Amino acid sequence: MSLDPRVEQKVRDSFARQTMMQTLGATMAALGPGTCRITAPILPTSLQQQGAGHGGLSFSIGDSAAGYAALTLIPPEAEVMTVEMKINFMSPALGARLVAEGRVIRPGRRIMVVASDVWAEDEAGARRYVAVLQGTMIPV
């Protein structure tokens, strides 16, 4: 199933207004009904003290990927906001970039359960599972 072009434009316009994503160098790599993929380079300004990508980078793009996945499934006049989000880190974010793959687990009129998987990729495209996020979005 493909995404309505009007919905896709709304989501991409919203993403373009997120100055946090601009600061992180993030891009929206893919978008579909109930799914979204966001990538971000692991920049020298996004590292933690041991040289890996900071957990805040993983959280930021994971939260946004889940939120934009949710935005694809709600009425055109509505937006979404995160109510809560949990993250489990599984390995250091080492590589050239992070990839967050967001999805809607359960759409609802009042709340939406969402999740994201965050991967670190090296220049050759090899992946390492970095984090999993699960949370709740609310249409507003």
Rank of each mutant, 00 (worst) to 15 (best):
G56V: 02
L57R: 13
L57A: 12
L57S: 00
L57T: 03
L57Y: 03
S58Y: 11
S58F: 11
S58E: 10
F59H: 11
F59V: 14
F59C: 09
S60I: 00
D63A: 10
A65Q: 02
A65D: 05
A65C: 02
A65E: 00
G67A: 07
Y68F: 12
A69K: 00
A69G: 09
A69D: 05
A69W: 00
A69C: 05
A70S: 12
A70Q: 04
L71Y: 04
L71E: 06
L71R: 01
T72D: 06
T72I: 02
T72L: 05
L73I: 00
I74L: 06
P76A: 15
E77D: 10
E77N: 00
A78I: 13
E79C: 09
V80S: 07
V80T: 06
M81D: 03
M81L: 14
M81V: 14
M81A: 15
M81Y: 04
T82P: 14
V83D: 08
V83H: 04
E84P: 07
M85W: 05
K86F: 03
K86D: 09
K86E: 04
K86A: 13
I87P: 02
N88Y: 10
N88S: 15
M90W: 12
M90F: 09
M90D: 01
S91V: 06
S91G: 14
S91W: 01
S91Y: 11
P92G: 01
A93V: 05
A93P: 03
L94Q: 14
G95E: 04
A96P: 07
L98A: 07
L98I: 03
L98E: 06
L98G: 11
L98D: 12
V99L: 14
A100E: 11
A100F: 13
A100V: 13
A100G: 13
E101K: 03
E101A: 13
